[in-house]
Design a protein around this nucleic acid. Sequence first.
DNA 1: GGAACCAGTGTACCACGGGTACAGTTTGCG
DNA 2: CGCAAACTGTACCCGTGGTACACTGGTTCC
Lengths: 207, 207
Amino acid sequence: MLDSTSRKPDTRERLLELAESAVLAKGFAATSIDELVAAASISKSGFFYHFKDKGELAEAMMQRYIAHDKAVLDDLFQRADELNDDPLHGLLVGLKLFAEMMANLPEVHPGCLAASFCYQDQLFNKKIRDMNAASVLGWRKRFRARFDAIVAKYPPKQPVDLEALSDMAASNVEGGLILGRMLKDVTILPRQILLYRDLVRLTFQPS
Amino acid sequence: MLDSTSRKPDTRERLLELAESAVLAKGFAATSIDELVAAASISKSGFFYHFKDKGELAEAMMQRYIAHDKAVLDDLFQRADELNDDPLHGLLVGLKLFAEMMANLPEVHPGCLAASFCYQDQLFNKKIRDMNAASVLGWRKRFRARFDAIVAKYPPKQPVDLEALSDMAASNVEGGLILGRMLKDVTILPRQILLYRDLVRLTFQPS
DNA sequence: GGAACCAGTGTACCACGGGTACAGTTTGCG
DNA sequence: CGCAAACTGTACCCGTGGTACACTGGTTCC
């Protein structure tokens, strides 16, 4: 039986986890299958049982990463919406929760797999690049829907590029991750999120 | 004689240029010395005449990239300052020029080498990582100086995290580059820059 | 006009690691 | 028992980074 205390090691999942940290540290090409199987304590053949080649590993990594990313955001904004009915305040609360979550990480965030893949995209097939694009369009759509609700209630004083403002959620997180890593400073990302929150507030909140 | 019409091909520079595009497309590890020498039409020995190993190539690439990056920004803000004496308006003009420059690129920007290296930083030695950190601190310092001048003349209505606001210049560009690449949309980066400009304006401009 | 030097070429070689192929084996389960 | 899932073991090929070293064509200095 497979209950929560199952001894089943779920090798495939372990490989994906190991691969993700390695890729975020060294890039995909420099991440060797040998090092993954050594760390997972399986044989090289065992790897090829789970993934027919390295490309399939990449595909599974992206799938896993995107699903996890979506689940975190879904949960975050669901909690924010439970605290509030107003679309603007809901978003502001959500961004605050997001910033707090990122501030409470024990060490500097290891980075975004989508960004890593983006900067090595010639290594991957079209399917993977499309998944990547779809995931960032997911962020755009998610935030755009909220901004559409917000403008209906709080018409901005000046014209706003709502698509760019929606994209800035993802853009600013990606940038914050990079700066945080470069400077080894865990505070950069949460502060960038709060600054984005300020922009949203200044744009829509009646003064 | 070496004049401006010199036939001197400057092999080293060509190698660095080729390496930069290749690394931005595939990452450093996947960029082989053999492909570079083939593209530059020299022999492998020729490569090792210029760089003692691949690590030295990486170092030279970063040096070149950072110098170029600095030169572009210096030029940009020098032009902006010539148009204006006011610190706030000078920055706003500079950001507008920056956005226009990015909007006029013929195709989607190939990306930031510092970000690429950041996402593969375990491949590089401490010296290179330090150069990378120093370059982003350069952005912070540059913008922080401008904001310090701005707050003196335009005290903001609400407290502002000036360091985060300075970092956001780099952060938002990094993010805009990534989103632009992922979605193959050249308009994303300039619109992100204009949005950052809006935040600066909203933060300091008396209403 | 020869020596020194710059910017390479050509050839040969090696170790390592990624990746492929495929047959064989253990483990859990109905 | 029988079967499938989840592997193991072995053998092999090739690309890549890197070393070693002898050589060369052009330029400049004296």
